[in-house]
Measured scan of single mutants.
Amino acid sequence: DLSALRVEEVQNVINAMQKILECPICLELIKEPVSTKCDHIFCKFCMLKLLNQKKGPSQCPLCKNDITKRSLQESTRFSQLVEELLKIICAFQLDTGLEYANSYNFAKKENNSPEHLKDEVSIIQSMGYRNRAKRLLQSEPENPSLQETSLSVQLSNLGTVRTLRTKQRIQPQRTSVYIELGSDSSEDTVNKATYCSVGDQELLQITPQGTRDEISLDSAKKAACEFSETDVTNTEHHQPSNNDLNTTEKRAAERHPEKYQGSSVSNLHVEPCGTNTHASSLQHENSSLLLTKDRMNVEKAEF
């Protein structure tokens, strides 16, 4: 173990290094160091905050020279020094078990990766560091076993998940096959086929009936047209017969005018059967003409 005197000496050296690497504005270890034209180094955030307070150039807090945003430059070497100082402080805390008085939040800088452990060898070769390295080497064999167990647990979990997924996939297939086998029997399929065939026959029977009705309507229309044509021909046949009657009536009127007047009046009210309204109107006109002729003949006879 380190003596108290040596611990104090190391602590004083760390404090001196820390004062050199402090920012003059925030009085902390410089984060993202930036250098000016006057070779003074500050935190990048502190300098941008200072420049944004005034429009135009501002003055350096140490030498009062003008500073602009374009004049600022990043210093990589200074950032490396800060990183190495942080590593020294971490090693000091691990070796002594004491917390550094002016320690900052170094938890963000710590890294437990194997590459980081290899890099620590180049920091300080001390008894405390050696003991700590031995402890780490002793704890390393235990870690692979834990990793193997965790991997086995994960693989077993994956296997159970896969088996569950396969079961879920197989179950719908089985149910679907069961439904297909038990849903419709052979008799049901035959009945469905016969039902479809009967429906098709009914459709075939319905369509000819409609065509037959249309044919019957067409035949009825044709018969009505033929009947009207026969009526017209009958009226045409009746007209010459009426003319013959008129000639006979004229002759009778010349011989017996008194008797014919009474008979002509009675004939006005008689309509021949089986004739249309057109034929009756023609008869009325003929009878009126005959009456006028008879009157003329009677007057001539009187004179």
Rank of each mutant, 00 (worst) to 15 (best):
T292A: 08
T247D: 03
Q18F: 07
L137Y: 08
T68M: 13
T233P: 09
V7F: 04
A223D: 01
I206G: 08
H256W: 13
Q80S: 13
E28G: 02
L204H: 06
E140G: 12
P257S: 07
F92S: 00
L158P: 12
L29Y: 03
E28H: 01
T248C: 11
C26S: 00
R70C: 09
T248K: 15
S152A: 13
L268W: 10
P141S: 13
G159Y: 07
E32C: 03
Q147M: 08
A279Q: 15
S71F: 04
T235N: 08
K55L: 05
M17H: 00
K64T: 00
R130Q: 01
P33L: 05
K37N: 14
K64Y: 02
L85Y: 14
M296H: 07
S156K: 14
C26L: 00
C38Q: 00
I30G: 02
N246Y: 12
L81V: 06
K222P: 13
L136E: 14
I20W: 05
T248F: 11
E84G: 13
N243S: 09
P144D: 14
D218V: 06
Y260D: 15
D39T: 10
N276A: 07
V177F: 03
E74L: 03
K54A: 06
Q283S: 08
L48F: 14
S197V: 00
C60W: 01
Q201H: 01
K55V: 08
K250T: 09
L21V: 12
N131R: 14
T189I: 07
S176Y: 00
D1E: 06
C26W: 00
S186Q: 13
Q261F: 13
H116G: 08
L217D: 02
Y129D: 06
G210F: 03
T275S: 12
T211D: 07
I30D: 02
D1G: 04
I123V: 02
R130L: 09
K87F: 06
D188N: 14
R77I: 14
P57Y: 01
M127T: 13
Y100M: 13
A91I: 02
N143W: 11
P240S: 05
K19C: 00
D66Q: 11
T247Y: 14
G262S: 14
D218N: 12
P257Y: 09
H256P: 12
S126Q: 13
K108N: 03
S216A: 05
V7K: 05
E32T: 03
T230P: 15
D188G: 11
C38A: 00
N157L: 04
T160R: 02
